[in-house]
Every structure is written in C-alpha cells, then in structure tokens.
Design a protein around this nucleic acid. Sequence first.
RNA 1: GGCGCCGUGGCCAAGUGGUAAGGCAGAGGUCUGCAAAACCUCCAUCCCCGGUUCAAAUCCGGGCGGCGCCUCCA
Length: 471
Amino acid sequence: MRLYNTLTRQEEEFAPLRDDTVRMYTCGLTVYARGHIGNFRTFVALDLLRRTLREVAGYMVRQVMNFTDVDDRTILESNKAGVSLREYTDRYVAAFREDAEALGLEAVEENPRATDEDNLRSMVEMIQSLTANGHTYESDGSVYFKISSLSDYGKLAHLDHEGIQPGARIDSDRYEKDDARDFVLWKATSPDEPTWDFGCGPGRPGWHIECSAMALRLLDGAPIDIHAGGVDLVFPHHENEIAQAEGATKETFSRFWVHVEHLLMDEGVKMSKSLGNVFTVQDVLDKGYRASALRYVLLSVHYRKQLRFNWGSLDQAEEALKRLFGCLARLEELTGGETHDEVAERVEAARADFAAKLRQDLNVPGALGVVFELIRFVNTSIDNDELGQGDAAEVLAAFDEFDKVLGVISLRRAEEAQPGVPVDEIEQLIADRKAARARRDFAAADAIRDDLDARGVALEDTPAGTTWKRK
RNA sequence: GGCGCCGUGGCCAAGUGGUAAGGCAGAGGUCUGCAAAACCUCCAUCCCCGGUUCAAAUCCGGGCGGCGCCUCCA
C-alpha cells in the first residue's frame, strides 16, 4: 500500500521487510493524566492503520504501544497525590484502557511500560553501546547524547543545526551541556525521586531512550517497519530516538515514519489546560454523545490533516451513523425476492473501491464516501423492489468487511443492544399502539410513540410492521 | 527568524492535469392517518492575481488568510 513517510516527505510503496509481518511501534500515552480526545485522534488513526495493514493489505501486524510511566510530570503528580509512581500511573493506564475500549481500539500485541525492569535494562544496554561508540558524555551524574557525534542528526525533522534556537530552553541551573541540542539519556535523580541503577549509575531514563530500546527489544531488532505517533513528536522525540537507536546499532532504526496531525478545538487552537478546552473521551460521553459518534468524527478526516473539533461535528456524525444503520436494518429485515446480478456487481465494485482508497495512504474519508454511495444504491434498489434476501446477505457481508477496518458498526451495535427501555416493554408498547391504531385511536397511538421517543426509542411504521431503534 | 502544512458549496470533507465523491443542514416532491425512514429533484467552478498547458481546484510564481514544529506535548 501507499504510505506517506515523514523521513522522505513523500508517499512511498510500503511492504514489511521480513516475512509478511509488519513490525510497528507507536508512541503511546504519558500516564500522568487521562488522555484527551486529541490523544485519541492519533490512537484511532493508528488503529485504522493497523486494521488496514491486516485487512486490506493482507499483512500480519505486530504492534507495540508503550506507556511512558516515568517523567517529570508523572513524578510530580504522584508526589502531589501522595502515592507511589507505580500506583499513580496504574490509574491512568486503566483509564486509557477504558477509553480505548469505548472507542473500539483493538488491543495491540505489546503495551510495555518504561519502568518494567526488562525495559530499563535494555535502555541501559543501549546507553552503554552509545558510550562504546563515542556518542555520550557525562555531566553531574547524568549521561548525555552528543549531537555533534552523529553526522546525519536531524534527518527526520529536517532542521538545520542553526535552525534550532539555542537558549530557548537551557538547563542553565544544574546541568552542563556541551550543546543546547544535546539531550539526556540517563538523568541523575534527587533523593526523593524514583531511582534505578542497572549500570549507568543511579538515576532514571531520559524521555527518549525508552522508545528506542523497547522498540528494538520487542520488535526483534532494527530496522523496524513503521514508527508512528503524533506530529508533535517529530522533533525532538523521534529525531532523538533515531539518534539513539542508530548510534547504538549503526543500522537504520525505522523504515517508515508515520505522523498523525493534531486535533484542534473550535477556534483552531490546540487543547491546553490553560485555555480550559481539554476534553477526555469520558467528557464527551458525559455530554450524552456516543462513543461510536466520536470514533466516526475522529476517523472522518484524513490523518495528515488537522481536525477541527466542535460539538456539532458529533451531531453530524450521529446523523450519518443513523443513515448507515437505517440501511443495515432494512437489509436485515428483507425477506424473499430475487437475486440480482447488478447488485453483486455494485457490491464488488464498492469493495474494490473501498480497499483502493485505504491503500492510498489511508484515505478513510474517501472510503466512507464509497460506503455511503453503496447505501444510496441499496436504498434505491429496495424501494424499487430490486434487491432480494440473497442480495442483502451479500451487501451485509460487504459492510462487515468495511467494518473490520472502520470498527464503527460493531461499536454501535454494542451500544444499540442497550436501549434505555427494556426490549420487552418496547414490544408490549408497540403491540398496544397497534391496537390503538386498529381502533383508529390515533391520540393514544401517538402518545405511546411520543413517550418512547422521549425515552430514547424511536418507532417507525413500515409495510412489514413497526420497528424500533435507539435514538 | 528557520522548517513545514493548509485554504473546496451554509457546515464537515474527498479529489492533486481532463470540465467538482460523500456526510450534515436547507428547499420542493413521492410515500404516510400523522410522523419517521427511504427515494427523486434543486443547491459550489474549488482564497486572490499572474503564468505554463489543447486542458488546472489539481503544475509554477506572487499575494492574502489560518495552523503546526523549532520548548513538555498525541
């Protein structure tokens, strides 16, 4: 499939290097707080990539997504909360899992945590290799990476050395760095901070080293196929990961780099606490929106374009999903009828188009267009009595196939299974209403419908009888 | 200041050389006890100005506007 590679700044043909397995590392969450919907925009996009590689491109996928469970913020917040770092970060690992499940994110093969001993040991080993290769220096108990020792440093971010503003952030108080761009590999700790000592002296890992080390440890060495994350990670995080991994192994770290653009709020600004516009998945659900609608919003804009989030987009997504589900319901209720070659042809064409869009650098919005074009065709065919039960089975199979990538139908089905009113009661009320209509007591009939409507269940009269659905 | 991205109908959003997918909203119509759903019809020439080309939303140049990174960040 075609995939845009940040390393070359162009779209390239992607295929895994070894066997038919894509080895992919995706930067996960720093678990100092609950992830917000901007974080999950990235995770949903990467979930789509994972599913597309498997379902459309036909590869196996081995994906690693980490939890950064040690850094300045996690340490600070756990101290404030008065609990251990592990206990504190456990909470947000659990919160992430809850939100991920709500959004229908597939579980990935590995979710390593930076502070697991195996991982810390591999970080230390990598630092030792870097030292052996002459890429490090020590200062005040901390180990730094020496930028000037690696000639192609900067190849990902394409920042020339002069372009990096010195002075913007210098650890002028405690650490002595040779160059403003040098970064810490192993950080000396103060007595009250979590500290490990596996060979680099007492301290804790720098921010970047965990990803380099865990990616190579869990994905069987360099080069891995894909490394991905949000755009903000391009520099310095990913640039530094490359420096570490390549400085240590002298091999290409990752063949492809995939970056997901940001989600912005209404006014075109990033979410930030100071602006009070940070929203979590739970916040969205608490406002009464459904997770399936949120997933739809997050996947309905191409991953390399900024997504301007506003609450109205959730309403639009809700309506679009209702249209999709209305079509599914009609298909499922169809009985009898002929089978038509034209339907089979249209379904086949839609499948091919859908796959082609995704193969083109994950064009999910384009693929959604294909889905809705098929919906119109199906609805028209049913209206004209040109679609039989046999056809319906084929169309439904196609939708199932689409959903293996989109993951939004299965998500909503699970929601639909839990209406606000018990199914038995709904069915009883439908029967009561039918009786009222039979005696032409439309006031009573409408009262039942209005009552259910108010409780979140919509009734629709069709030639085959009355159906209900959750609103 | 350096690097980069973006600007498509009322809103959201594909398309990147051959005369504008799709979703939402809106108008009219069919159907209906009324609704709902569904269907049909209508609703853009692609920020502006030049240029290249038989042909440009799509390529080049220049503007205007928005955003990101360069500093913790998905």
